[in-house]
Design a protein around this nucleic acid. Sequence first.
DNA 1: AACTGAATCAACCGCGTCTCG
DNA 2: GCGAGACGCGGTTGATTCAGT
Length: 198
Amino acid sequence: MVRLMGWGVADEQGWRKGPWTPEEDKLLTQHVTLHGEGRWSSVSKNAGLNRSGKSCRLRWVNYLRPGLKKGHITPQEEGLIIELHALWGNKWSTIARYLPGRTDNEIKNYWRTHFKKREKPPQIQGKRKAEDVVEEKQHQDAETRKSDEINKERMNYLRGDEDMSFTNCPTLHQEVNCWSISNVTEDSFLWGSLWNWH
DNA sequence: AACTGAATCAACCGCGTCTCG
DNA sequence: GCGAGACGCGGTTGATTCAGT
């Protein structure tokens, strides 16, 4: 993947740019495992990486962080993205908080490729291997019924029965497991917006 | 088989906000 | 209160992949 010019070269500050190598990933992972997240600007020195702090953070958050989901966005996740985007617009990081294992970058990319163009008919995942499409179709069929129920529940929840609690929304709570009590506390300001949204 | 164009996604950039001395 | 550096976010870019022709 070391393609044309610009890849693997250094910028004015001497930071390496372009795709990450497995060695760099390993170094970054080791460093963060040992020292935790944060202090990205010092990661480059301490981990022996010739990368900017920004680049290290991005790589960790979007690719290396444990618990990240790989693979296609599920119908449930898609529904949630639509709803949350309707609420918050392009607040990708906010939306990402309610999609466990998904990153803001991933959601942003997904939105751009799938929904920005939905003025046209939904050429969902327009380019995929045929078997992927078949596989997804099967998956979606299996999920659709469940998804409908969840979405109904979710919309009721989001649109605001003021007295509705998480315990009153068991499926949603189970489904989106980051919607935990602790997160509610953390993000109470967001929930404030949610409650006030109409 | 070769070509083309659209989709995908990793990575970068610019800017606003936060934190700390 | 102020400035510098660090951090986080949203927007954008561009190489790669792959279906269609």
